[in-house]
Amino acid sequence: MKINRIHHVAIICSDYQKSKHFYTQILGFSIIKETYRQERKSYKLDLSVGDSGQIELFSFPNPPQRPSRPEACGLRHLAFEVENIEETVINLHNKGVETEEIRLDEITGKRFTFFKDPDNLPLEIYER
């Protein structure tokens, strides 16, 4: 068996329009397809991330809250690679998104920082 790559990451949001705006207008991901599923009262928004990645953004009525701190078992965060971390941080700040201080990964020597989506999902930008 050989797994080629991660195909997509699925995210469930509490406010579809707010999250759609965040992922398309703030982070700049382009829409592949948007589907409203009447039987579930749910949207599914497929977003393109870079050359090959995708995010599936879902809305469901009254989804349970995500456990966060102290860190719960499970997916810890979602990280995006960027060319220039300072430029990306400035761009996020200009769009009203707060970030943590830029840190240095002592293992790889690369710089990174964290920020949150509208549902407080931890997101990371990691310099190439």
Rank of each mutant, 00 (worst) to 15 (best):
E71R: 12
R76K: 11
L75R: 04
L47K: 00
I31P: 10
G74I: 05
V89C: 10
R111L: 12
K41I: 09
R111A: 09
E101V: 07
K44D: 04
Y126I: 03
E106R: 06
I107P: 04
Q25H: 03
I6T: 04
T35R: 15
V97K: 05
I102T: 06
D15H: 04
K41S: 15
N94A: 14
P64D: 00
R111P: 02
L57H: 11
I11K: 01
R37A: 14
K2Q: 06
S52D: 14
F58I: 07
F112P: 05
S42C: 01
F60D: 11
Y36C: 05
S19R: 03
G50D: 12
P122L: 03
V49L: 10
K18R: 09
K33L: 15
R37V: 15
M1S: 11
S48T: 11
V89P: 01
E86D: 14
I6Y: 08
L78E: 08
G109Q: 15
R76I: 11
N120D: 08
L27Q: 01
E124I: 08
T99K: 01
V9L: 04
P118C: 00
S14N: 10
P67A: 03
A79G: 13
R66H: 04
F22I: 03
T113D: 12
Q25C: 02
L75C: 07
S42N: 00
T35N: 15
E98W: 01
E127R: 00
I26P: 04
L104D: 10
N120Y: 02
H7K: 08
E71H: 15
I11F: 07
M1R: 01
R69K: 15
K44F: 11
E98L: 06
R37N: 13
I32A: 15
D51I: 11
D51E: 13
F60Q: 10
F80L: 09
K95H: 15
H8P: 00
K44R: 08
Y43L: 01
K2M: 03
P67D: 01
H7D: 13
I31K: 12
D105N: 13
